[in-house]
Design a protein around this nucleic acid. Structure first.
Length: 754
DNA sequence: GAGAGTGATATGCCT
DNA sequence: TATCACTCTC
């Protein structure tokens, strides 16, 4: 125990050793949050307050869950695999597998990722002959997911207009369709589990009694359903240990509700609110900047980071005249950092939106500096992998129509659109899945379709007793995927990926504790349950969804869940020592010796879509806070007067966030920058494209695009466009925080600012 | 069924 | 500007 608590600071120690009551830990950036969380679990177990089975630890990402398990195994000689540590979705999956009957799901239900969900909705809209101009699939998807995240089924949604009524009806259809096919989307995993436990008293009480300690990571990111889910799991007796940072809440746009922190404090009668404010990551000036900036947010629980490290170096600010120049400056600074001995992987370039990465990538490429961009396509999202997975899904659950349609004619088998229409009609009329309807289709189409179905069945028969990796191999061969890609010009990479899938299957069974030779399709292995038996409302004895996945699902089902729930690495080839390029969002949780935050311009950061209301600006500010606190020793912030975006040159003002940083922590590097207009000319020359000719309006009015101006009411702005001429000329002016204004040049009292 | 052509569309992205 | 999904054409 000495060991465990060794080296914790007083705040951390207090948090780790709290009594068994609900507590809220406000953990600032770099304050040792994960350490506190894992040490807390280890401490509870080691002091005999709870057994590993009595712990429920929830995270948002698989990465965080894995990290927690790794650290925990290092602290205690226990097998973490059987513990209930996982993502919300992963844990729900486990519960639903164990209690599939009570949850009214087929044992082999499958999980739709976002892509699958969208294509399913599109298919449904088409089948129902719905005008997709009026009711776009994407909007419907958001509507459905939002409703589910509010805990609402179709008939819970209050529709005030016809449009919404239509959506509600489609939501209902969608749910029915999912149920028929035996598939669930991400939100459904949570909602279904929530409903299962709220309706099923014995089950609920069983788990409530079991999980004496519930620990939640990144609590500020919980959405409303997740919060309700936690309340239900906790019941009255469990202690919930919630760790979060309201200042790092940057996912409101996808339903996260920071308000859950305040609600938690109130509803769980939190007596223990502990703030972890000691920062072990960044130097003083960097923390000063973060603290000063975030203090501008009105809605905060309040927290201030401090460090024992000295001031360190000031934050370097650079003003570029255009985005190319900004990129080149990053290259130059990086080169000198590297020359100073900073390794490339310790240098990160952050940007607000992905579109900004292009210019920087180009410059890095030209300079011959290795770099890595986060956020590309992930392994399980690749088309060829999706195809292979679809075959596996059909073997596991033939009623999955999405999977059926994905591969029925891939590789091509002469089953065209008309045959499929026939099949879908037949299926609808008879209330069958596509797979089952195939036998009822007459003619040549029918022959081809039954041929496909037979191929699936044969594969299932041939492979059912094989271990998972070998099954995957058989599927690759029998489906014709490998042959197909062999004949394709650029199929080599795809074949390589498909072979990787066999490896992934191998790795998966060994990690999840499936027997090396246990048949892929064998149902849950009959193993003695660690938990006590419980009896459900119908008098059936049910098993606790205890321990490894192996006890509640077949290797194949488990692997398919894994493929949906964990899309795999989304960072490009690791290995080489490369500079790191990523959005600010994906930088959350990471840290680097040197960080560049780029594009600090009004409209970009804060983003124009968020700057309309105060809540949006506050989230952008938190985003900037996250960006700043990624840096350990050196921080650069840059902005540019002009920038190419969507094929057009934009004139931006520097971000309002500059006014919210402490001047004494900053060092302005900017050389005398050319005037906007010259910058544009020069850039045009560089890019070898003709510059925009002066319009008559620009010549006549004495004003020009790019001119900085001052307005009595709106302050400083930049002319973005001029229309009309002579006395009627009007200009669009970007006033940053005040937005874009269209002003009559002869009326508005504008002053030129040089 | 592949490839060309069209047009909408462009903040962030985990599960 | 560039990408992507989708339709059209041979």
């Amino acid at each position: 125990m000495q060991n465990l608590l060794h080296n914790l600071n007083p705040e951390q120690l207090a948090a780790v050793t709290l009594p068994a009551q609900s507590a809220l830990i406000l953990a600032g950036a770099g304050s040792g949050k994960t350490r506190v969380l894992t040490t807390r679990i280890a401490w509870l177990i080691q002091t005999g307050q709870v057994s590993p089975a009595g712990i429920l630890a929830v995270t948002f990402t698989n990465k965080a869950a894995k990290e927690m398990m790794t650290r925990l195994s290092a602290m205690l000689p226990i097998n973490t695999r059987g513990m209930w540590i996982g993502t919300f979705h992963g844990l729900c999956n486990r519960l639903l597998r164990a209690h599939y009957r009570d949850a009214a799901l087929p044992q082999t239900f499958q999980i739709l990722d976002t892509q699958d969900q969208l294509s399913m909705i599109k298919r449904m809209l088409k089948a129902l002959n719905i005008d997709d101009e009026k009711y776009p699939a994407r909007s419907l998807m958001y509507f459905i997911n939002n409703a589910k995240e509010e805990g609402q089924r179709a008939n819970d949604v209050v529709a005030v207009d016809d449009y919404t009524r239509m959506f509600v009806q489609l939501y209902d259809f969608y749910d029915q369709q999912c149920q028929r096919e035996g598939v669930v989307d991400f939100a459904e995993l949570l909602l279904r589990t929530y409903e299962l436990l709220s309706r099923n008293q014995p089950l609920r009480e069983h788990y409530q009694a079991r999980f004496k300690h519930i620990l939640v990571d990144e609590f500020q990111d919980t959405n409303n359903l997740q919060y309700k889910w936690l309340k239900l799991m906790a019941g009255r007796g469990s202690a919930v240990f919630a760790v979060g940072d309201d200042d790092q809440s940057i996912y409101a746009f996808r339903g996260a509700n920071v308000g859950n922190m305040a609600a938690f404090e109130r509803e769980f009668q939190v007596e223990n609110l502990i703030k972890l404010e000691q920062n072990y990551r960044s130097h003083g000036y960097i923390l000063d900047a973060a603290n000063t900036l975030i203090a501008h947010n009105a809605k905060r629980l309040g927290k201030n980071l401090r460090t024992d490290a000295g001031h360190g170096e000031p934050i370097r600010i650079y003003e570029a005249s255009n985005d190319l120049q900004e990129a080149n400056w990053i290259i130059e600074e990086s080169k000198s950092l590297i020359a100073e001995g900073v390794s490339r992987s310790e240098i990160a370039v952050l940007y607000r939106s992905n579109a900004q990465s292009r210019v920087i990538e180009h410059a890095l490429f030209t300079a011959g500096i290795p770099y890595r961009v986060y956020g590309g396509q992930r392994f399980f999202e690749r088309a060829e992998i999706k195809h292979a997975i679809a075959y596996l899904q059909l073997i596991d659950n033939p009623h999955n129509d999405s999977a059926f349609l994905r591969v029925v004619n891939f590789p091509t088998r002469g089953i065209g659109a008309r045959s499929l229409e026939l099949l879908q009609d037949t299926a609808r009329q008879r209330g069958l899945s596509l797979h089952d309807a195939a036998a009822h289709v007459p003619g040549k189409a029918g022959t081809l379709l039954t041929g496909f179905v037979r191929m699936i069945e044969n594969t299932r028969n041939d492979a059912s007793l094989l271990p998972l990796p070998e099954m995957v191999q058989v599927v690759l061969d029998m489906s014709g995927l490998i042959t197909h890609y062999q004949n394709e010009r650029e199929g080599a990479d795809r074949i390589e990926n498909l072979e990787q899938l066999v490896n992934a299957a191998m790795l998966f069974i060994s990690e999840e504790g499936f027997g090396k030779s246990s048949p892929a399709l064998l149902g849950p292995q009959a193993q003695p349950m660690a938990g006590e038996a419980i009896v459900n409302q119908d008098g059936f004895e049910i098993m606790d969804a205890d321990a490894p996945l192996a006890t509640v699902m077949s290797p194949l089902s488990a692997f398919l869940s894994h493929a949906s729930l964990e899309a795999g690495d989304n960072q490009a080839e690791a290995g080489q020592d490369a500079m790191q390029l990523m959005t600010v969002h994906s930088a959350k949780g990471l840290e680097f010796d040197a960080v560049f935050i780029t594009g600090l311009e009004e409209g970009l950061f804060p983003h124009e879509n968020s700057a309309k209301d105060e809540a949006g600006v506050e989230e952008e500010r938190r985003l900037m806070y996250v960006a700043i606190t990624r840096a350990r020793r050196r921080l650069y912030i840059s902005f540019s007067q002009t920038r190419m975006l969507h094929g057009q040159t934009r004139f931006n003002m520097k971000s309002r966030f500059f006014n919210e940083l402490p001047e004494e922590a900053l060092k302005w590097l900017s050389p005398k920058v050319q005037h906007h207009w010259f910058a544009q000319q020069q850039k045009a020359a560089w890019m070898d494209t003709p510059s925009r000719p002066l319009s008559s309006a620009q010549k006549d009015s004495g004003w020009r695009i790019g001119q900085s101006v001052h307005h009595q009411k709106f302050g400083e702005g930049v002319i973005v466009n001029i229309e009309g001429g002579g006395g009627n000329a009007r200009a669009s002016i970007n006033f940053g925080p005040h937005g874009m204004k269209l002003l009559d040049l002869s009326i508005a009292k504008l002053e030129k600012v040089e």
